[in-house]
Design a protein around this nucleic acid. Structure first.
Length: 235
DNA sequence: CCAGACGTTGTT
DNA sequence: GTCTGG
DNA sequence: CCAGACGTTGTT
DNA sequence: GTCTGG
C-alpha cells in the first residue's frame, strides 16, 4: 500500500539522509500528502539537489497523463518483469522523503475508517524507494500549462511497495518499501544489476517502527493538511 | 509483422 | 519505449 | 490513499 | 456504486 504519507521534518534532518544533499528552500510541513501532489525526493541523476516529483508515475511514453492515478505504487516483487517499470528500475531510481505514512482501519459498526500513522521510533525522517520518469505532452505547446495548472513537462514518481513487516501487517498486506540508511547510496547509484538492487526492497525492521491512531482532533488538521502539533494517541 | 497494453489496491 | 499476444 | 461528486439548460 | 480530484 501507501496512499498517503507525511513530511514535516526539519530541512537539516532531511539533508542528513543523503550525503551532499542541499535543500535551498524551506519545505512546508505536510501531514496529508496525496497522489498527484508534489513530493520531495532525490534522484540518482543528481543526489545533491532535491527533486520535486509529482506522485503518480507518468511514463515517458504515456499519451495521457491520467495514467498516473493507476501508477502511485509499484510492486517490488515484479518490477523487473513489468514493461512499465523494468527500465526505470535499472536507470531511474529515486528516494522519496517522508517521516511517516498512513494505513486505515475500519472499526465494526463505524462508518469512517480511522487513519493510523506509522513512523520511526527515533522520530527521524526516512526514504521510500521510488522510480521516476519525465513525461512531455505532445499535443499542446510545451510552454502552455494545462487548465489544472500542471506543466506540459512533468517529472513524476511511483512509490514501491513490498510485503509488510509484523507491525504493518496488522493493517494491510502491503507496505511502502523503506530503504535502509545503509542501502541509500546503492539505490541512487548507477548499478544496473536489478537483482542486486532489488535486495534493498525488503520490509523495514518493525523493531525500529511504531504506529499511532490519529485522534479525532488531529484528524481535522489531517484533513485540512494543516500544521499539526497535537500528539497522537497511542494504541 | 502489427496492435495493444503497459498498474495497484481494496472490495466483493 | 518495450513487451506480449495474435 | 480518501473525500466528494455524481447534471443540464437558460438566464443574468 | 464509481469516478475524479487532490
Amino acid at each position: 500500500m501507501c496512499g498517503r504519507f507525511a513530511l514535516s521534518a526539519k530541512t537539516s534532518s532531511i539533508e542528513a539522509l543523503v550525503p551532499g544533499l542541499h535543500i535551498h528552500e524551506d519545505l512546508e510541513p505536510r501531514y496529508n500528502i496525496a497522489p498527484t501532489q508534489n513530493i520531495a525526493a532525490v534522484t540518482g541523476a543528481d543526489p545533491t539537489v532535491p527533486a520535486h516529483l509529482r506522485w503518480g508515475l507518468i511514463p515517458s511514453w504515456a499519451k495521457d497523463k491520467n495514467i498516473a492515478v493507476k501508477m502511485i505504487n509499484a510492486r517490488a516483487e515484479t518490477l523487473g518483469e513489468k514493461p512499465a517499470f523494468r527500465n526505470l528500475l535499472k536507470r531511474r531510481r529515486c528516494l522519496i522523503f517522508a517521516d511517516g505514512y498512513y494505513e486505515w482501519r475500519k472499526y465494526e459498526g463505524q462508518k469512517r475508517k480511522i487513519p493510523f500513522y506509522f513512523k520511526m521510533k527515533s522520530g527521524e525522517p526516512f526514504t521510500f524507494a521510488g522510480l521516476w520518469d519525465v513525461w512531455k505532452n505532445n499535443e499542446q505547446g510545451l510552454f502552455d500549462d494545462f487548465e489544472d495548472g500542471t506543466a506540459p513537462v512533468i517529472s513524476s514518481a511511483t512509490n514501491i511497495t513490498t510485503s509488510p513487516n509484523e507491525l504493518t501487517s496488522k493493517f494491510h498486506n502491503r507496505m511502502p518499501a523503506i530503504i535502509l540508511p545503509t542501502d541509500r547510496e546503492l539505490w541512487l547509484s548507477d548499478e544496473e544489476d536489478i537483482n542486486y538492487i532489488s535486495e534493498s526492497l525488503r520490509p523495514y525492521p518493525e523493531e525500529e517502527m511504531e504506529t499511532y491512531e490519529v485522534s479525532s482532533i488531529v484528524n481535522n488538521a489531517f484533513n485540512d493538511n494543516a500544521a499539526c502539533t497535537v500528539p497522537f494517541n497511542t494504541i
